[in-house]
C-alpha cells in the first residue's frame, strides 16, 4: 500500500503481572479500509484494542498515529486523536433518546441550557451521512429500538466526533440475519466515507463480506496481516487455530517459547 497508515503499532508488548498477553505485536490500519482483527478467544484481541484506546498502557513498542509517534495514556488521549471504540455492550442509556445518547457527556449548550436544536441537527446529519433510514424519530428512546438500531446508534455516536479510526468490538454478535446485513453495510459505508475501521469478529462470513485486510492474532502474536482478497476462508481459520497456514503465519507456533 502506498497510502500512509493512519494508525500503526510496532512491537507492542503488554503483560498483566506475570502473564504476557501481547508479544511484539505489529498492527497497521489504513484510512478508507476495513481491517478485520480476528483470533481465537484469549488471543489478545480485546487487550490490543484496549491498548489502542488508551485503557491499558503499553509496556513496550511504538504507537504511531498519522505518521507521528504518540503516547496514549488515557481514553481521553485516544478520543482527542480521533480514535473511538464501540464496545460489545454498547454503553447506551435505555431511558434517553437517540440524540441524548449520541451527545452524552459532550452536550452542546448555549449558556446554562442544553442546545437541543443544534444537537438534533448534528445527530440527524450524522445519521444521514451514514444513510441510516431505519429509525422513525431521533427523539425516540433507545429502549424502543431493536438490536441492530442500537448498534447503529452506538456507531453513529462514535462517528459524530469527526473520528478517524472507529473500532467495533463484535458488532454483529447479538444480531439476526437481516440486522447483521444492515450493520455490515454501515461498516462498509464508514470506510467508504474515508474512515479507518477496525472490525473485531468471530464470524468469517462477516469478515470476508466487508474487510479489505485481515489481521490474525494467535496466542498474543500477530500471525499475519494480509489482504482479504489474497486469502481464503480456510487459510484464515488455520491462522486463527494454529498460527500458520502454508507460507503465512508465525515461523514457530509451538506455544509461547519462541
Amino acid at each position: 500500500m502506498t497510502a500512509t497508515p493512519i494508525l500503526q503499532l510496532r512491537g507492542i508488548d503488554k503483560s498483566f503481572g506475570p502473564v504476557q498477553v501481547l508479544h511484539d505485536v505489529s498492527f497497521t490500519v489504513h484510512p478508507g479500509e476495513v481491517t478485520a482483527l480476528v483470533g481465537d478467544n484469549g488471543a489478545g484481541k480485546s487487550t490490543l484494542v484496549k491498548c489502542i484506546g488508551g485503557i491499558h498502557p503499553i509496556d513496550g513498542g511504538e504507537y504511531w498515529f498519522e505518521g507521528e509517534r504518540v503516547h496514549v495514556h488515557s481514553p481521553r488521549d485516544a478520543a482527542a486523536m480521533g480514535v473511538e471504540i464501540v464496545y460489545q455492550d454498547l454503553a447506551l442509556c435505555d431511558n434517553l433518546d437517540i440524540v441524548q445518547n449520541m451527545f452524552l457527556g459532550r452536550e452542546k449548550r448555549s449558556g446554562l441550557v442544553l442546545d437541543d436544536a443544534t444537537m438534533e441537527e448534528m445527530a440527524a446529519k450524522t445519521l444521514e451521512g451514514l444513510s441510516v433510514r431505519t429509525v422513525k424519530s431521533i427523539r425516540q428512546q433507545v429502549s424502543s429500538l431493536s438490536g441492530g438500531q442500537r448498534q447503529t446508534v452506538a456507531i453513529a455516536k462514535a462517528v459524530l466526533w469527526n473520528s478517524k479510526v472507529v473500532i467495533l468490538d463484535e458488532p454483529t454478535a447479538a444480531l439476526g440475519v437481516a440486522q447483521t446485513a444492515q450493520v455490515l453495510e454501515l461498516v462498509r459505508r464508514l470506510a467508504d466515507n474515508g474512515l479507518a475501521v477496525v472490525l473485531i469478529s468471530h464470524n468469517m462470513n462477516d469478515v470476508f463480506a466487508v474487510s479489505d485486510r485481515i489481521a490474525a492474532l494467535y496466542l498474543g502474536r500477530m500471525a499475519a496481516e494480509v489482504k482479504a482478497s489474497d486469502v481464503t476462508h480456510s487459510q484464515i481459520v488455520e491462522l486463527i487455530t494454529s498460527g500458520r497456514s502454508g507460507d503465512l503465519g508465525l515461523a514457530h507456533t509451538n506455544g509461547a517459547t519462541a
Binding site: L92, C93, L96, G105, E107, L112
Partner: peptide, 24 residues
Amino acid sequence: QRTSFGLHIYAVGGNAEAARRAGI
C-alpha cells in the same frame, strides 16, 4: 430537563456504566 446536569442524572440512573464511559 434543560441542563446537562439533569441529563446526567437520568443517564446515571439509566446506565451508570455508560455514563461513566461517557466521561460523567
